[in-house]
Amino acid sequence: MTRSATLDVLIVGGGIAGLGLAGYLARQGCEPTVVEQATEWRSSGYGIGLWSDGLAVLDELDCLGAVRQRAADPNRIEIRATGGERLRQTTIPPDRTLLLAVHRADLHAALRTAVPADWIRMGTTPARIRERRGGVDVTFDDGRTETFDLVVGADGIHSTVREQCFTEWTLRDLDTYVWSLWVEEDVDVGGDMVSVWGPGSEGFVARVGDRVGVNLAARLESAPEPPALDELRTLADAVDWQRPALLEETDEEPFFDRVREVTCERWRTDRVALVGDAAHALHPIAGMGASLALQDARVLAQELATTRPERVSTALDRFEARRRKPVEREKRKARVEAAVTFVESEPLRRLRNGVVEHTPILDLFVRQQAISG
């Protein structure tokens, strides 16, 4: 057992980052408390892409096998224009796994297997967090107060921990909205993983086992009323190529959300840290959110592995120093990808499509993601 067993850690949020961190701490002999505001785990959510570094984390947590059983391991990735014209295709060697596409709920279920159920408290969240020199006093919404050596905010874009403990941060609502649904039908989607670029929109399709995962993202002038089914059908018709047919094959109400970005000047105080979307939510076009969250969990756990309670601040400082540059690099890449993908002007779309069709830009992107992801 390592010295991390002496740390009393509270993880706020039982999502990908929170469960990943709890799984690592469990392996180090630490028994963190995980609190989750939801009363039960949700079954809805996006189709998630996991690149190499995210897959390495799952492997270390002994979760990769379970995820792989429910995921798509593509050998081909295609980009198509409106109507289905193929612009570019790249192949991945069949003996290599650079990317898995999986339903968020399936990834989440696999991560839960690494965390004892009695460490997780459902239906509760901090009402007050007070940091002092010797620890962090946390009063929960049920009136209970406890003291911890470290509090980790893994509670997503609308983080309670960030709201209470940090001041220099911004939550930015973008003009982009995302729908995600799953179709259990034998629909021909061409390549293993296909991105179709419409006017100001992008549709993404991947076959995952016996289901087809469909994401559709689009820029809109005004916020629609959730779940915005009329807007979804209109966008699907504009993108064309299988989207209208896929919508007709399901009665499921799609998962719907607005795209937001989080920027924090600092991710840590002396005894409070932020990980994942709570610290650095980025545009989902990059498909890097889950991998970054899992990498945060791994690095923070590494820094805490031999840390005594009085040295928590030093460990958090090292954590942020190691993670800040990789995250900022991915955020910049995501902004560029969004600017290229969500083009509305017809002349600019033709220019962009020509560049993609006649250059190896897709191949270079996949190789870069495999290295950095």
Rank of each mutant, 00 (worst) to 15 (best):
T6G: 05
I16Q: 01
A17Y: 05
L19D: 04
Y24D: 01
R27G: 10
E31M: 10
T39K: 08
E40F: 11
E40L: 09
G47W: 07
G47K: 11
G49N: 12
D59Q: 13
E60K: 09
E60Y: 00
D62A: 13
A66N: 03
D73I: 09
P74G: 03
R80K: 13
A81E: 11
E85Q: 15
D95M: 02
R96Y: 10
R96D: 12
H103I: 02
H108V: 01
A110G: 01
A117H: 09
I120H: 08
I129C: 05
R130T: 15
R132S: 15
R133D: 15
T139H: 09
G143D: 14
R144V: 14
D149L: 01
D149T: 00
V152I: 10
H158A: 14
T160A: 14
R162M: 09
Q164T: 14
T170P: 12
D173C: 02
L174D: 08
Y177D: 00
W182A: 12
V183I: 13
V189R: 00
G190I: 03
G190H: 00
V196S: 15
V196E: 13
G200E: 06
G200Q: 01
E202P: 07
F204C: 04
A206H: 04
A206N: 09
V208L: 13
A218D: 11
L220R: 10
S222Q: 13
P227R: 00
L232R: 06
R233A: 13
T234P: 03
L235P: 11
A236N: 07
A238K: 11
D240Q: 13
Q242V: 15
R243W: 15
A245S: 14
L246C: 06
D251V: 02
E253V: 12
P254K: 08
D257W: 02
T263K: 08
T263E: 14
T269Q: 05
D270S: 11
V272N: 04
V272D: 07
D277Q: 09
A279Y: 08
A281Y: 06
A297H: 03
A301K: 04
Q302L: 06
E310L: 03
V312S: 01
L316T: 04
F319K: 06
R323Y: 07
R329L: 11
K331I: 13
K333V: 09
R335Q: 05
V336E: 02
V340K: 07
V340G: 08
T341R: 03
F342T: 01
E346Y: 10
R350Q: 14
R352A: 07
G354M: 11
E357M: 11
L364A: 08
Q368E: 14
Q369E: 11
